[in-house]
Design a protein around this nucleic acid. Structure first.
Lengths: 334, 334
DNA sequence: GTGAAAGCGCTAACAT
DNA sequence: ATGTTAGCGCTTTCAC
């Protein structure tokens, strides 16, 4: 049932080498006659080449590994999409492992993918503000013979052979903060993902700058439920908050759900804003004010950069973000 | 920088075999002393085993291939999630390729993943009502030495060595149809995905049965935009429709968006329902009536079944679906 | 133009 | 308990 090259060669009455030259698209010359004979037999036997054996020799298997925090999180899903699009275009296979943002798991997974012959590694996981993590990641990158792309802010030795793709989260935070300030908000609550993740802490930092005052930050799980529960806690502690920001749209959606249940009108009683601009944001009622990140483009850029001929090209690419003002934010009720 | 087994063995002053026995977790006996020496060297060299070479010998690489219609479609994303969860649990690597529902591409991708050593293949793509496709898929499955799991209704030779996971779409359609009929709807429009996909045609068929009358079906792209445009066309052609059903929630969301823009109130002027029960459905206003499919569970079941010892166990598993009535459907305005 | 043979990194008999 | 050797399926010198 298997059918390997040797068998094809035998049945076609040619040598292993010739069969290989025909089937592997080698630029080597083979007579038309033999070529056809080999092709015919391969077809008949339904020969499927063994890419692993091939990779063993040529040293590359057209495979890219991708490390994400969580499949199912719209943030990562969008980037996965972008990566997949380029992968299809360049006939690369993508193997994704979700690390649950556990640094230990992330490092292990890097090894695993490395072991399985990935020639490009896209680390979309986190970018943790944790020295041990950073050192571990640096070590992995050093021992990796392929190209590594880091998505998000990673404080990695600039001499390191890596590519970086990131969004200007700080700027996005500022814009959102200024928007809220202009609407008169001074008592703002934030339901935030883990602040060890640098992109999250950047968001909050930017927001604080734009706002001009410290918001009340609560770290919760980066899910709809996290946003829901977090909002409840924030409002319990400080019922005078006039706005809630989620560091991811799902969380803002959770916040809005809580408001709806409590009879709080958005934005009349409370303004709500999110981050990432997931597709459904504009279909909510009220539609969601958010910071747009070009996540798909970032995913595309990640793989494209990695696959591009490694010249002294820009090794880092920062994407601008955009404030998308919709209906969920409004002036403070006087 | 590479560092292979041979190098480890040499530096540790042992034979290749011994190093292998230590590092590959073979049950073979090795003295404590040598074991430690090997481990130390491996650590120091940051030795990363070559899984491809290993796979070449043991014949399996703990890798599962997954074929989906489109990464980014909430329907597939949910199943991917389920698969990933089990994969993590069983330390399997998952390689996903999205086929855009193109039968040709799906078959090619199957080969590709097969070539790359997948030992389980999960086909979540489509299940097309197309003889050529069916035959092609059957051929691929036959030549595949691993286990194949088909998600969705696939009319495959029952003697074939495959596992099946599916949802009772027909039943879901009936329930939704009856629900609408009970509310008095007789003029119903459907924005539908491609009817060549058997799960889609099952949905429409069930719906028709439950409704007791033929709905007006329009095939569009299975996206929010498809639902939006489709609804416009349907209402242009027949302004007297009292309900719109999308064969996927995104399409229903598009329909609701169109209504909102046109000043049509849901469900007062028009009822809207969807399918799949994506998480955000309950956060819409009005919240979305839909048919719940246990997509994550189905993904989990797919991989779990494939990995289970292949006894004469149930080779097929059909999941019940559930009608989730929310606010977007209501009685026909009299 | 074609074939024989070496070897990619590793494991599994088979000795010892 | 350890080492030697023969391959896994394939590509690639190197002869012819």
């Amino acid at each position: 049932m298997a059918g390997n090259l040797k068998e094809v060669a035998q049945r076609a009455g040619v040598s292993l080498a010739t069969a290989s030259r025909v089937l592997s698209g080698s630029p080597y010359p083979v007579s038309e006659e033999l070529r056809e004979r080999v092709m015919a037999v391969a077809e008949e036997l339904d020969y499927v080449p063994n890419a692993q054996a091939r990779a063993l020799i040529v040293g590359s298997s057209r495979t890219v590994g991708m490390l994400v925090g969580e499949v199912g999180d719209p943030y990562f899903d969008a980037m996965i999409n972008g990566v997949h699009r380029i992968a299809k275009e360049q006939s690369q296979l993508v193997t994704i492992v979700s690390t649950g943002r556990d640094p230990r798991r992330e490092l292990d997974s890097f090894r695993l993918l490395q072991s399985h012959g990935a020639s490009v590694m896209i680390v979309a996981g986190s970018g943790l503000d944790d020295p041990a993590y950073r050192e571990g990641l640096a070590a992995r990158i050093r021992s990796f013979s392929g190209t590594t792309v880091l998505i998000g802010r990673h404080e990695i030795d600039p001499e390191q052979r890596v590519l970086c793709v990131q969004a200007d989260n700080l700027d996005g935070g500022r814009m959102l903060g200024e928007h809220l300030r202009a609407l008169g908000h001074t008592r703002v609550g934030v339901v935030s993902g883990s602040s060890v993740v640098s992109s999250t802490s950047d968001r909050v930092r930017g927001l604080t700058e734009g706002l001009g005052v410290e918001p009340r930050v609560l770290e919760v799980g980066q899910t709809r439920e996290g946003g829901y529960e977090g909002t409840r806690h924030l409002l319990d502690v400080d019922p005078d908050l006039t706005a809630i920001v989620g560091t991811a749209d799902q969380m803002a959606i959770g916040a809005m759900a809580y408001c709806r249940e409590q009879g709080l009108r958005v934005p009349t009683d409370l303004s709500v804003a999110g981050w990432n601009d997931i597709w459904v944001g504009r279909d909510l009622v009220p539609s969601l004010t958010t910071v747009h990140l070009p996540l798909e483009e970032m995913g595309e850029a990640a793989l494209r950069l990695a696959l591009a001929p490694q010249t002294a090209e820009p090794r880092a690419q920062t994407f601008p973000v955009q404030l998308v003002v919709r209906e969920s934010t409004g002036p403070v009720r006087s």
